[in-house]
Design a protein around this nucleic acid. Structure first.
Lengths: 234, 234
DNA sequence: GTTCGTGGCGAACGTTGTTCGTAGCGAACA
DNA sequence: TGTTCGCTACGAACAACGTTCGCCACGAAC
C-alpha cells in the first residue's frame, strides 16, 4: 500500500512535538471534554470522533484510557451526579435534605441534556453513587420509614428523578419552551371530541399546568407522602 | 458504471413476479415484522435493514410507508401499549382498574424488551394513548383525587411504568436472572466497609429483596397512597 | 550509537440511517 | 394494439458511527 507516497502533505504536517503544549491525554481529560460537548450540544453530539477532534487527536487514542462509548457515558454520568454535594445527615430535616439531593440531581442532569438516558434502567454502582444511596437510605430511615420501604424507595426515587430529567431534556433538545408546548397541547386537547375524551377535554387546563420542576416536586412529594402514610399505618 | 455487466448473476435472480406470493408492503406489515424481531432479539436488532431483509426487500422500500427509524419505533410502541385492553370504568373499582391498566402496560413492554426506551421522555400523543390517558384520568377522578393531582398523576404513573419496564428489560438483555443479580449485589453490599456505608451494609438484605414486579407494585401503591392522603387532607 | 518498547494515531472495517436514480409493472390513453 | 404515464420497489451509494489494526516516532536502556 503506497498511498502514503502519493498523498499530498496536508495543511498541518506538524509533529507531536511542536504543538502548543498539548496536555497529555487521560481519562479525566477525556470525560471533561465530553461533558463540555454534552453541555453545549447534547448527548448525540458526544461521539468518540467528536471528543477526539476536540482533543486534537484521532479516535483511536481514546481507547487507551476509556473502554469505549458506553464506559465514557457511564463515567460522564458519574461525574455529573457526583457533583451534587452530600450534606451531613440531620434526622430532623430528613425530608428537606432528601429533596435537596434529588433536586440537585435533577438540576445537574438538566444542565447536561440527555445524560439521564444513560441512567435509566442501568443503576450505577460506582463508589460515589453507592455513597449517595447510603445517604438516601439513612435519610429515609431517619424519617421513620421501615427498612424495606426505604430500600425500595432508594430504587424508585432516583428512577423518578432521571425520568423527569429525561422529559425536560427532550423539551430542551427540541428547542421548544415549556410555554410553547403547553399552548400546543391545550389547543390540541380543546379540539378533541368531547364524547370520546370527556375527561381530557374538561380538564385540559390542569393537564397542561405546571412546568417540569413543579411536576417533579409533586411527584416526589406524593411519593414521600405515601411512604409516610405507610409508616404511620404499620 | 458498468459493474452491472461484470457481475455474476446472484443466486436469487428471481424477479418481483415469481416470488411465492409475497404480501404487499404496508405500514402495518412493517410494524408487525419489527415487533416480531423485537420480541425475539431485542430493540437493538430492529434496524431498518434487518426489517427489510425479513420482508425480503431492501431498506429503501420501507421509507415509502414509514418516515424513518424513530417513527417506526413510535409506531411499535403504540401497537404494544395499545394492545392493553381498556375496561368499562367502574368507579367503585377505580384503584383495581388502574392497577390492571398499568400492569398490563408493564407486561406488554416486558415482552417487547427495550421498547420502553422509546417511551421515556417522549410521551406519545396518538389517539390510542390519549384514550388511555382519558381512561386513567377518569379513574383517578372517580377515586376522589383532585383534578390537578389527577392530571399530574397521569404524567407520573406511565413514567413509573416505563421506567420499571426498562429496568427489567436490561436484566433480560443481560441474560441474568433476578436471583443471580440479587446474589451478586448482596455479596457486594456485604463486602462494603461498614464505616462508610453503614446503612447499605446493615440493610443489604432488604435492598436486594423483591423482584421487578414486587417493586413495581410497591411504587404504584405508595404513589396512590400519597394521592389518596392528599385528597383526604384537602 | 544502536536497539527496544511503548504511547499515540492515521487509516480502514463493518454497520448504521437515509437518499437517489432507475427499473419494471399495471392502467390509462391514442 | 401500441405507447405513454405514474407509481411502487429497490440496488447502490453516502455520510457518520464505534472500534481495531498496524505503523510511526519518540525516550530510555544497553
Amino acid at each position: 500500500m503506497s498511498t502514503r507516497l502519493l498523498d499530498v502533505p496536508t495543511a498541518h504536517p506538524r509533529s507531536t512535538r511542536d504543538r502548543p503544549a498539548k496536555p497529555p491525554l487521560s481519562e479525566g481529560l477525556i470525560v471533561e471534554t465530553a461533558l463540555k460537548i454534552l453541555r453545549a450540544e447534547g448527548l448525540d453530539a458526544v461521539t468518540m470522533r467528536r471528543v477526539a477532534t476536540e482533543l486534537d487527536t484521532g479516535p483511536a487514542s481514546l481507547y487507551v484510557y476509556i473502554g469505549g462509548r458506553d464506559e465514557l457515558r457511564r463515567a460522564m454520568l458519574d461525574r455529573v451526579t457526583g457533583s451534587v454535594p452530600i450534606e451531613e445527615p440531620d434526622p430532623a430535616r430528613w425530608r428537606e435534605q432528601l429533596h435537596a439531593l434529588l433536586e440537585g440531581w435533577l438540576r445537574a442532569m438538566e444542565t447536561h441534556p440527555g445524560i439521564a438516558a444513560v441512567a435509566v434502567g442501568d443503576p450505577p454502582t460506582t463508589e460515589r453513587s453507592l455513597l449517595a444511596a447510603d445517604y438516601m437510605l439513612g435519610l429515609l430511615l431517619a424519617g421513620g420509614i421501615t427498612p424495606q420501604d426505604a430500600a425500595w424507595a432508594c430504587d424508585i426515587l432516583p428512577l423518578l428523578t432521571t425520568a423527569s430529567a429525561m422529559e425536560t431534556a427532550v423539551h430542551i433538545a427540541r428547542g421548544h419552551s415549556w410555554e410553547a408546548t403547553a399552548e400546543r397541547f391545550e389547543a390540541a386537547f380543546a379540539a378533541l371530541p368531547a364524547d370520546r375524551f370527556p375527561n381530557i377535554v374538561r380538564h385540559g387546563d390542569v393537564l397542561i399546568s405546571g412546568d417540569g420542576d413543579e411536576r417533579f416536586r409533586f411527584a416526589i412529594d406524593v411519593f414521600l407522602d405515601g411512604l409516610v402514610a405507610r409508616a404511620g399505618r404499620a
